[in-house]
Simulated scan of single mutants.
Amino acid sequence: MSQDEVDEVAAELYALPPTAFTAARNARAAAVGGDVGSRIKALRKPTVSAWTVDLLAREGDLGEALDLAAALREAQDDLDAAELARLSGQRRQLVAALTAQAVSLAEAAGVTVSAAARDDVHKTLNAAVLDAAAAAAVRTARMVRPLEATGFGTVDAAGLADVVGGSLPGVEVDPPRDDLAQRRARRAAEKAAREADRAANDAARDEAKLAERRDRARHKLDHVRERLDDLRRDIARLEADEAAAAATLTELEDRLGAAASTARAAAARAEDARRSLTELS
C-alpha cells in the first residue's frame, strides 16, 4: 500500500465522527496488518475543532478563502497598505462566515462544537487564509488538531506534519516570481490607466469650466462695448448741444451788450430832455 493509499484510508477515517474514529482506525489497521497497518494505527484521533474544519474542507467551499489568502500574501509582499486593509476586512468577514458554516455542518452531523472548539475552528481557518502552508494542510481534510497564525507566513510548513493525519502535500508558499511580476505589472498598468483617466476627466472638467468663464467674459465684453458705443453717441450729441448752446450764449451776450449800450444812450437823452424842460419852466 502506497502513501497515497494510506492517505485515502486516512481521509475515510477522518470523515467519521470523532467518537467513531478510534474503533474504525484500529479495525482497519488490524485488517491490513504489517507495516502499513502500523502506519494506519499511528493515525491520531482528531479534536472536535480539527474534525469540524475537515468537514468544512470536504463539504463546504473554501475556494474563496484560499483565493483571498493568495491576494493577501501578494498585498503584503507588495507593501500595498490600502489593498491590505481592504482585503483584511474581507478576511475577517469571510473567516467568521466560514466558521459559522463549519459549526453548522458539524451540528447537522450530530457533533456538538463547544465555544472553545469554535474558537479553534476560527483560528485554524484564519491561519489557512494567512498562510499558504496552513491552507495546504486544511485542504487535505485530514487535520488532527487546530492551527493558529499570528501574522503572515508564521506557520512553518515543516512543522505541520503533526497536525495532519497522513502525508502533507508540498506547499508553494509564494507564487512564482514571474507570475508575481506579471500581476504587479498588470496592477501598475491598471493603476496608471485609472490615474490617466482621472487626469483626463479632471482636465476635461477644467476645460469646460474655463470655456464657460470665457463665454461669460465675452458676453460681458460685448455688453460693455455696446454701452460704450451708446455712451460715445450720447457724448457726441451732448458735445454738439454744448457747442450750439455756447454759440447761442455768445450771441445773446453780444446782443445784450449792444442793448445795454442803447439803453444807456436813450436814458442819457431822456435825462437831457428833462433838464431842458426844467430850465424852460
Rank of each mutant, 00 (worst) to 15 (best):
R216M: 06
E172H: 15
R213P: 03
E190A: 14
E190H: 13
K209Y: 04
G170D: 14
A188N: 05
A196W: 04
L231Q: 07
R227K: 14
D202N: 10
N201C: 01
R232D: 15
E195M: 01
K191E: 12
R214S: 12
L231R: 13
P175T: 07
D229S: 11
A185G: 05
D222C: 04
R177G: 06
R232Q: 11
R187Q: 04
L231N: 09
A188G: 13
D202Q: 10
E207W: 09
K209N: 12
R186K: 09
L168V: 07
D174M: 05
A200Y: 08
R177T: 09
R177N: 00
K191W: 06
G170M: 00
A204Q: 02
R218S: 13
K209L: 13
A208W: 00
R205P: 03
L231V: 15
D230K: 13
A196Q: 04
S167Q: 00
D202E: 09
P176A: 02
R214Y: 08
A199Y: 05
R232G: 08
A236R: 06
R213Y: 12
R194F: 15
H223S: 08
E212I: 00
R194Q: 15
A208C: 00
D234K: 03
P169Y: 07
V173Q: 07
S167W: 02
R184F: 06
A217E: 15
R186V: 04
A189N: 03
D179M: 04
P176Q: 00
N201T: 08
E190M: 08
D174C: 01
A185I: 02
R177C: 08
K191P: 03
V224S: 12
I235P: 06
R198L: 14
P176R: 00
D215M: 06
H223D: 10
D179S: 09
L168C: 07
R213M: 14
D197N: 10
G166I: 08
D197C: 05
D179I: 08
A199M: 09
A204V: 00
G166N: 14
N201S: 09
H223W: 10
E195K: 02
R186E: 12
D206P: 00
A217H: 05
P169I: 10
D174P: 01
R198N: 11
A193F: 04
R184N: 02
A193K: 11
D179P: 00
P169C: 10
L210W: 11
R198Y: 05
D229W: 02
R194C: 14
D230N: 09
A188I: 07
R213W: 11
A217W: 12
P169A: 11
K220F: 12
L180D: 06
R184P: 04
E190W: 07
R225M: 14
R218F: 12
K191F: 08
V224L: 15
R214G: 08
A200S: 11
R233Y: 01
D230M: 08
L231E: 13
R205C: 08
D234V: 01
D222M: 10
D179L: 09
R214P: 01
L180P: 04
G170S: 12
L210C: 02
R232N: 06
P169L: 07
A208K: 00
R198E: 15
N201F: 06
R232L: 11
L228Y: 14
R198W: 13
D215F: 01
E207N: 05
H223I: 01
L210D: 15
K209F: 02
E195F: 05
L180K: 00
